[in-house]
Design a protein around this nucleic acid. Structure first.
Lengths: 192, 192
DNA sequence: TTGTAATGCTTCGTTCACGAAAGACAAGAT
DNA sequence: ATCTTGTCTTTCGTGAACGAAGCATTACAA
């Protein structure tokens, strides 16, 4: 800061990273504010919301929907359960699955927690013109796709970079991609 | 996902959150891949890079530059120190400050660690047409501003505001915008 | 039936990230 | 000189977030 900026051209890509980090940090700070105002962090609220909306959901399904790993989802569910906001039940037809449902207390909590990302951001966001909302969302999804992409065609990693990784780097899940809103603005020509 | 989308209109704002979460997740996964290929996570590399570039830097300065809290920075520096990648020295003229400098081993490590975000993303990103790079970066910075705005009101360093008359949206640091003639496309009207 | 996958979830160990509070130090006030 | 205040860093406690490995269960093969 202070504009001294040792590198005159910090690679654009780094700029993206930094911007991203700022956004993440902001989200995190929101989350911490959230937990003080009504006792739920953003991920908790997000997970709870999914569960409440669906009535009953398996852990894995939740994980998929909110783009988190099973492990993390389990963590979050643990905390939610400890506060009696969700109830676990093993599914009767497939006893491996653990079904989650929101307790009445949770529904109440959710009702009092309007938008996930807080008035300030969602208010600000809502005030943007429609096209800009779409644009921002699309940009985000595009970036997500760009990043996810690498673990989709993970194979050519060896050939190009060759970071002396002996591991074949097998693709873990084909799952998290898919829907990125086909209406990405990706091939709009430059307005000029 | 899977497009079934239980809620017909899940509030756009939630969509933003989810997309964000996907991006964050991707970044995190990159980081974990990075640590396997050359032993540094993304935050570690980012911090190290700043230090190496500046020669000698105080902890707080690093924290500011990478947009992390002091506590987090200390954490990361601890890990770097444990691996002999940075050396701590108390500043001689102000003994509260702890100066950091990168060891030769770190410089070496950094040299072998090409771009922070990995060939795949930065390669893909670099291949995008100029206008799109700018657009994505601008979108990200816009979102960051939208989110930061609410907790910046304490430190109005720069009152620019303007884009569409909401809050002044003061930037915490003057640095991340502008720079090399990045033509932010923020107020293009909808093409239709 | 008895193995051998495959699936779904949890546990474990690690890193990251924060705020709050404590510790170390500097600079001005009494 | 001592006290107070303010600044810089670290420690502490908490909550993410992940991969890997483990457990329980189902599904399929022999």
């Amino acid at each position: 800061m202070i504009d001294g900026d040792p590198q005159p051209r910090p690679d654009r890509c780094d700029e993206v990273l930094i911007a991203l980090r700022r956004v993440m940090r902001a989200v995190d700070l929101h989350s911490r504010a959230l937990v003080r105002s009504h006792g739920l962090t953003a991920p908790q609220a997000l997970v709870l919301k999914e569960i409440a909306a669906a009535g009953e959901l398996a852990v894995g399904t939740v994980a998929q929907r909110v783009s988190l790993s099973h492990a993390t989802t389990t963590d979050i569910v643990n905390r939610l359960e400890k506060r009696d906001l969700v109830a676990r039940t093993r599914s009767s037809n497939d006893r491996r699955r653990v079904m989650l449902r929101a307790t009445p207390a949770a529904v109440e909590s959710l009702r009092r927690a309007p938008p996930l990302l807080q008035e300030s951001f969602s208010g600000r966001f809502a005030q943007l013109p429609e096209w800009e909302q779409s644009m921002l969302l699309a940009a985000l999804q595009r970036i997500a796709a760009l990043m996810d992409a690498e673990r989709i065609d993970a194979a050519p990693l060896l050939a190009a970079g060759s970071v002396d990784g002996a591991e074949p780097a097998p693709e873990p899940e084909p799952e998290p991609v898919a829907d990125n809103g086909a209406d990405l603005v990706a091939d709009e020509p430059p307005p000029a």
